[in-house]
Each structure stands twice: as structure tokens, then as C-alpha cells.
């Protein structure tokens, strides 16, 4: 514990002073979870809360990375220090992953930018914890905006992107992409839409589909009291067209959030979600431990023998859990 605390403290101090290599290390420690990650969260939390968190999501191949890369080119020119967290799925079988998002960002990103790839299963705490942890670290050491890019395929990915201050959903013409996005629950979380590959036939149709869905306000849930309606940006990420307009839309959304007090609301909600996720994880770890000990195994056996109802066993175990004096840490 002390040793973890020591390493975390040193690495954090170095990262805070601008050491990029230390930041790379810090992100690994956060991703890994456990005592070091907790210590880093303690250290970083007071420094965080300044960066604008932007989620970018969409179907595979929609051009998210290229679009993000274009923002990485644009932002340093305007004195921003952007960071990107690119989240890609791991193989469910082996836990390995191929993370390829840097390819279309690297060339464009300058010295003041920072790109980090993360696999969905490359850490033990769950994506819902690792992502906020990494974003907090970027925020604390002074990166702003912090962009989190996920493939909008699973609920967790959508949740992660949706928990940003501003969420950008990228669709492409054809393929009923807008419809797919709707099905995946992406439309509900979108603050801004990008129709990428806008030079393609069907781009106007994609735009119209989106407008139509936005008109049905019950689908979007976005057209709030202040009258914010998600704008639709037409882009061609390959040559950078639309990157300016996208950034403008992001900035406008930020102003809107700040003017209406929604920024604070969103952040409050996000922190609350993080506490819940953490609590959930700890409770699960504890529950697993209690289930595995002698009493737990005995109770399970009684349930199997039909001598005790599952509800009764759960209630007895919950009692044990809550009175247990053992440390409440997750296994990490």
C-alpha cells in the first residue's frame, strides 16, 4: 500500500510537471485498478473538473478516428492542449486487443497533444471505472479538451461516450446508418451529429433522416427547455472538411451548457455515476468473497438441497456483508 502510494505519488508529480512518459505510466496504473489507482484518483480529483470532456462515437468505419485526428490538428493551432482516449473492444475470448486508432490521428497530432489507446477489457475495474479514471488524469495534468472515442456498439460504450459534457455521434450516408444509430441508443445521447463522407451519394438523405428523428422530440429527449436542438455537421474527415464547423458546434454546446447550468448538472450526474459504479464493483467483489467462504458455501448448499430459499440465503449473506469488518476494497 505504502509502496503503491509512493509510486503513484512520484509518477503523478512528474506527470503534473509535464512529463509525458510519466503520464503514460500514470494511465497504466489507473487502468490496472487497485490501490495505486485509488491513490491516483485521490491525487487527481482536486485538480480536475476544468477540462471539457467530449465523447465521439459511431459505428465502426464511420470515420471517428480521422475526424478526431482532424480536431487534433486544429486544436493546437488555437492554443488548446487536446488529449484523446481511444477505446476499442478486446477479444472476448483471449482478452487481447488490436488498437488501431492512432493510425489516423498520429500524423496530424502535434507535440502538445496526447493520444492513448485503451482496450475494453484491458483492466480489471471495468470500462465504467477505467475511462473516468483516465479522463480525470488528463484533466488534472492540464489537457483540455479531453476527447473520448468509442465504437458505439455496446451499451457500456454508449454509456461511456454519453457521460461526456458533449457527445458527438458520427454517421455516414447510406446503410441506414441513422436508423442503426437510433437502434443502438446513440440518438438519445447525441448533442451533435456529424454526417461524415458528406461528398457521398445519400449524404443529404442521412441529414434528412436525422432531422426527421430530431423532429420527433420524444425520440431525442434532447430538445430541452432552453431550446437546444442537436446541430448536424456535414464533414469529410479525410480532407478535414467540417472539422472547423464541428469544433464550433462543440464550443457552442459548451456555452449552452454553461449558460443554462446544465454543465454542473452533467458533471454532478457523472460523478454520481462513478461513485455508483465503484460501489457496485466493491459490493460485487465483497459478495463474491462472502459467497466463497465457509458460511457462503454452506448456505448455497442448503439452497441447492431445497432446504433454504434463494431469497433467504441472499438476505443472510447481505447481513453478513454489511456487518463484516473486513476492508471494503475490491480485489483490483
Amino acid at each position: 500500500m505504502t509502496q503503491h502510494g509512493h509510486e503513484a505519488d512520484t509518477v503523478f508529480a512528474r506527470a503534473l510537471a509535464g512529463d509525458r512518459r510519466a503520464l503514460g505510466r500514470l494511465l497504466s496504473l489507473v487502468e490496472r485498478g487497485g490501490p495505486a489507482a485509488e491513490r491516483i484518483t485521490e491525487l487527481a480529483h482536486p485538480h480536475s473538473g476544468r477540462a471539457h470532456i467530449v465523447g465521439i462515437t459511431g459505428a465502426p468505419g464511420a470515420g471517428k478516428s480521422t475526424l478526431t485526428g482532424q480536431l487534433m490538428r486544429l486544436l493546437p493551432e488555437r492554443s488548446f492542449r487536446p488529449a484523446v482516449l481511444a477505446v476499442d473492444p478486446s477479444s472476448p475470448l483471449t482478452g487481447g486487443a488490436i488498437l488501431g486508432d492512432r493510425i489516423r490521428m498520429d500524423d496530424l497530432a502535434g507535440e502538445s497533444a496526447f493520444i492513448r489507446s485503451m482496450a475494453t477489457r484491458g483492466h480489471s475495474g471495468g470500462l465504467a471505472l477505467a475511462v473516468p479514471g483516465a479522463l480525470r488524469v488528463f484533466d488534472a495534468v492540464g489537457y483540455d479538451p479531453v476527447i473520448v472515442e468509442t465504437v458505439g456498439v455496446g451499451q457500456v460504450e454508449v454509456d461511456v461516450a454519453g457521460a461526456a459534457d458533449t457527445t458527438v455521434v458520427v454517421v455516414t450516408p447510406g446503410w441506414g446508418d441513422a436508423v442503426q444509430a437510433n437502434k443502438a441508443g446513440l440518438l438519445e445521447v447525441a448533442d451533435i451529429f456529424v454526417v461524415n463522407k458528406a461528398d457521398r451519394p445519400g449524404a443529404a438523405d442521412a441529414r434528412r433522416d436525422l432531422e426527421l428523428m430530431l423532429d420527433l422530440s420524444h425520440v431525442t429527449g434532447q430538445e430541452d427547455a432552453a431550446g437546444y436542438r442537436p446541430p448536424i455537421v456535414m464533414a469529410q474527415a479525410l480532407d478535414g472538411t467540417g472539422a472547423d464547423a464541428l469544433w464550433e458546434a462543440v464550443a457552442e454546446h459548451r456555452s449552452h451548457l454553461e449558460a443554462t447550468g446544465q454543465m454542473a448538472d452533467r458533471r454532478r450526474r457523472r460523478l454520481r455515476l462513478e461513485v455508483i459504479s465503484r460501489l457496485d464493483q466493491m459490493a460485487q467483489a465483497q459478495a463474491a468473497a462472502v459467497l466463497a467462504d465457509d458460511v457462503g458455501r454452506q448456505l448455497l448448499g442448503e439452497v441447492e438441497q431445497r432446504q433454504m430459499a434463494p431469497t433467504t440465503a441472499a438476505a443472510r449473506l447481505a447481513e453478513r456483508l454489511l456487518t463484516d469488518r473486513r476492508s471494503g476494497r475490491g480485489t483490483g
Binding site: 478486446s90 477479444s91 475470448l93 483471449t94 482478452g95 487481447g96 486487443a97 488490436i98 488498437l99 488501431g100 492512432r102 493510425i103 498520429d106 489507446s117 482496450a119 484491458g122
Partner: peptide, 16 residues
């Protein structure tokens, strides 16, 4: 090789 290493459980940052 990228696939071999992924299938061995590694995280491959593919720069191409």
C-alpha cells in the same frame, strides 16, 4: 503477427 499476439492475450497498438 498482430492477430497472433492478440490471440495470445496481448494488447497490440497497431501503427501500421
Amino acid at each position: 503477427v498482430a492477430r497472433i499476439l492478440r490471440d495470445a492475450g496481448m494488447e497490440v497498438i497497431y501503427l501500421g
